[in-house]
Structures are given as C-alpha cells and as structure tokens.
Simulated assay, not measured.
Amino acid sequence: MVQERNGGLTPQKATPMVRVTVWWRCPAGHQWEESISTRTAPAKWKNGDVAACHECVGYRVPDSYPGCGHTVMVTSEAASKKPTRCWKCQQAWWQDNGERLKAELSAAAKGAAGRAAALLDAVPVPQDVPVPLVDEWRWWAAKQVQGAIATEEVMDKDGECGLVLERIARAAARLLPTWEMAARAAEVDGVLKLVDQAHWAEGRIHQLTGRGPRPAAAEDVENIGFVLDAVLAGWSQSAARAVAEKPGAWWPCPTTAEITRSLTRAVVSMTDHEVFAPIASYVRTYRELRLPVVLDGKGRYGRLDVVIWIPHGPDIVVEIDSAPSAASAGKLAFARDVGALPLWVRFGSGGIQEIDEVTVLDVREAVRSVRAAAS
C-alpha cells in the first residue's frame, strides 16, 4: 500500500473486509487505486502471485485516446479495440449526444431493411431446418444486420456489418435441431419446453412421435384453477394493504406494467402452494417462453407469460392481460391443443372473452381495489 496516500489506513489495519478503495505501489514503482478485497483475490491474471502488479505482468497497459487526449491504464484487450475516447469521456459524450444518435440510428436501421435482407439471402442455412424456425432466425438476424449497417453509417464503425454477419452465419450453421431431434427432446422434457430455440417443435410432437397430446383432466383443471384463484385473492389483499401503507411506492396509482409484473410474480409463486409440495423439487417454471404461433401480419413467434412444467401432469400455461387480446387467445388455444392446461388472467379494461376449454380468472375487481387504495 502507498501509506502516504491512504490517510491513516495502514497495512495492519487493512483487511479484505474493509470496503474502501486504496492506493497500491509495486516494487517497480507503479501506483494504482484498487479495493482491498479485489487486490487480495487470487485472480487468474496474477498467475498464482496474489501480490502481482497488473502493469508488470502486462494485464493492464497504458493507452492514449486521440478523441480526448487522456492516457489511462486498461486491459490489453480493451486497448486493442482502439476507441477514440476514454471510458469516462465516452460516457459524457453519450450523455450529451445519446438522444440524437438514437434517433439517427433508428432511422438508418429502418432504411437498411432491404440491404439487410439481401445480405441474409447469402448466408447459408442448413437444408433440413424447418421453415418456421428459419423465419424466427431471419427476424432476429435482420435486426442485427440493420443495426450494424446503421452503426457504420451513423458512427463510422467500418467493418461492423462484417463482424455481425460472421456471428449470424455461425448461428445459422448450428441453427437448430431437425424436426426429429426436437421431437425426441420434447418427449423427454415435456410438451411446452425443450432445448431453448426448439419450442416450436413441441406443438407437433404427436405428429413426429405418434404420441397424442396429454389431455388435461377436468379434476386437474379444477384443482389448479382453485389454487391460482386463491393465490391471486391473497395477492389482491396484500397489494391493497401495501399501497395503502406506502402509497409513495405506487404513486399516483399502479400502472398497467406494474400490475402485470406483480401478477406475474404472484402466478409464479403458485408453485409454493401446499398442493405442489410433494413434487416441488421437480416443478420447473419458465417466463416468456417462445412458441410457434405467428398471427396474421406478425413476423415472429408468440411468447407465453408463464409456463409451469409438472412431471406426469399437464403443463400449466398462464397469460396475463389488461385487455382482450387476439394474440393471447391464439397462444392459449395452441397450448390447449397440445394438451396443456391454459389459464387466462384478465384485469383492466374490456370484457372477458370466453375460449373453449380455457379457464379465465377475472381479477378486474381485485385490481380496481388495489388502485383505489393507492388513489
């Protein structure tokens, strides 16, 4: 430690538990600021010497920035990127120019849609990947390429588009499982969950394996609906108390987004109910799970708000909406058709739409009481 620069703090008083940043000096005379806990940690770059100096071992090197004129110590990897400004100056520059650049980048990206599509046409995609999955990949890839083109035009980052296309080509090469591979994974992992990008295949599991969808028994529907109804009733009471006791946290009243997030947490907590206790360690919960429902005029798959996978039972699919939604109706119908147990939690404005074999939980009055407590 550099005792003369650290006030009254001495090595004898300093321990890793002292959460302060202090000055250090190595035998070669290099000085720098670093916390005690970080300094005494056996990081990989120290090569076993906990007292190693990051400059002596070449982990950090001095780098000069022509845009601001500063010279600072950075990692060799950061120095190789050759930015024009140091990190602090770049943050200040972004703060001054961020809104303008976002608008310019957005406009440039929209104008690059045609060029992005042409570049993607040249990216090889495995022949045995199903069309719906290729469509999903192209939607993601187009956004990446459009952004790269805009970055080159607006921010003068030459070569950005080439780097993005390389990454996209690598993703396309390992794109995704064939129908048969996805079906085998679906058979093991359940009707609405398998290896990350392959959720689309689960809707066709019965076509691929000859195994029909698992029907949701009336008793299961009744029991799960009862549990979730009880959970949401408890949520409305506790939320109303919370906003009444601490109105500032929800002031002037809970927004639709806040209500949606709060309801989602309540739905996820359903698996803590005693009904699930015997299988709690096996239950898996997923949020924003993708599935292959592309409505007319849309360019990508839908996502389910909450999916609860239960071994040897129907998956529970929950959509949470503040208003009637054709997209949610389509996703829930898809979940129903592949043997899941679909539940629709509705709050906010609009009427309640009835869907065959989809349980609708109306919490509009409960949400109104929560908002009333905040007003």
Rank of each mutant, 00 (worst) to 15 (best):
E219S: 07
G8C: 10
W139I: 01
K110H: 14
K246H: 14
E245V: 12
D135P: 10
R261G: 05
A171H: 07
P177I: 03
L232W: 07
E219F: 05
A198Y: 01
P215I: 10
T209P: 03
P292R: 07
K331E: 01
V283W: 02
T75M: 06
I36W: 02
G297M: 14
G302L: 06
C56E: 02
V154Q: 03
G58N: 04
R19S: 04
L228V: 08
R287S: 14
V360G: 09
H70D: 14
T209F: 04
P314V: 03
P215S: 10
V188N: 05
A230V: 09
Q91A: 08
A14C: 06
G339H: 11
P278I: 02
W24T: 09
C68D: 11
V227K: 03
A183P: 09
P62E: 11
T260I: 08
S35D: 14
C26P: 14
G58H: 05
V307S: 05
R214H: 05
P314G: 02
A109H: 12
K246S: 14
G162Y: 00
G299N: 15
V338E: 00
V318P: 01
S106N: 14
P324T: 00
D321S: 13
R287H: 11
L194F: 08
D156V: 08
A122P: 02
S35P: 13
I259Y: 05
W251R: 08
K81I: 11
V22D: 03
V154R: 04
G234L: 04
A51D: 12
W251P: 05
V338M: 00
A171K: 08
E99Q: 13
R290Y: 11
A28P: 01
Q144I: 11
R39H: 15
N223L: 14
